[in-house]
């Protein structure tokens, strides 16, 4: 697929790419460390050991991530000097709404563990809709109740699948 044209870029996006790549480099080094120090390259019988493949993968990850990081740092310097950003620099976007959705999703993951599938879904959806679809109280309330109920019936009753159990039982 051809590269999409990205007309608007921001400095935060360029910096965030570097942060992401540094985190990836850290993970790659950790992965390689275990591959080289904890896992054997060969077995006692002379066959390829459990460390053979991870060592190749780990070394490849470190080299490639370093290369991509060098590219990102070059891009950063170019953007800082007023030049055009690279093809893989991020477009300008809405961090605020994304942060809210991420926060809600993480909160939902915690709520599921505590209160089980149904209650947490109603609470999460109710809050998410209030924040993203404000001013439509009735519609939001209907969606926040009907959708989890439908999903519950589908998974728990029709398909007999596992629904997350509650750690804390509510009195209702």
């Amino acid at each position: 697929m051809p590269q999409s044209t990205r007309p608007v870029f921001n400095r935060i996006g360029v910096d965030m790419r570097i942060v992401f790549l540094v985190a990836l480099l850290g993970a790659s080094i950790f992965y390689s460390y275990i591959a080289f120090y904890d896992l054997n390259f060969m077995t006692r019988s002379g066959r390829l050991g459990p460390g053979f493949f991870p060592r190749i993968v780990g070394a490849g990850m470190v080299i490639m991530t370093l290369w991509a990081l060098a590219d990102a740092l070059r891009d950063r310097a170019r953007v800082a000097a007023g030049g055009a950003p690279g093809a893989d620099d991020a477009p300008l976007g809405g961090w605020r709404d994304l942060a809210i959705l991420l926060g809600l999703a993480i909160g939902y993951a915690v709520l599921i563990r505590l209160f089980g599938g149904f209650i947490s879904t109603v609470a999460y959806l109710g809050l998410a809709l209030v924040l993203f679809n404000p001013g439509r109280l009735v519609m939001n309330a209907v969606v926040a109740l009907v959708f989890p109920a439908t999903v519950y019936v589908l998974f728990d009753r029709v398909l007999n699948a596992n629904m997350p159990p509650a750690l804390i039982d509510l009195p209702f």
């Binding site: 959705l101 809600l104 999703a105 939902y108 993951a109 599921i112 563990r113 599938g117 879904t121 999460y124 959806l125 998410a128 809709l129 993203f132 679809n133 969606v143 959708f147 989890p148 999903v151 998974f155 398909l159 699948a161 596992n162 629904m163 997350p164």
Partner: peptide
């Protein structure tokens, strides 16, 4: 804006139903 939060629910509950594993959910 309505569809998005609902997709999160389907993703989360869909994942859990596979092996009933919270580790997989996280």
């Amino acid at each position: 804006r309505i569809l998005g939060p609902c997709i999160v629910v389907i993703c989360a509950l869909g994942t859990f139903t596979v092996h009933a594993s919270f580790v997989e959910l996280y």
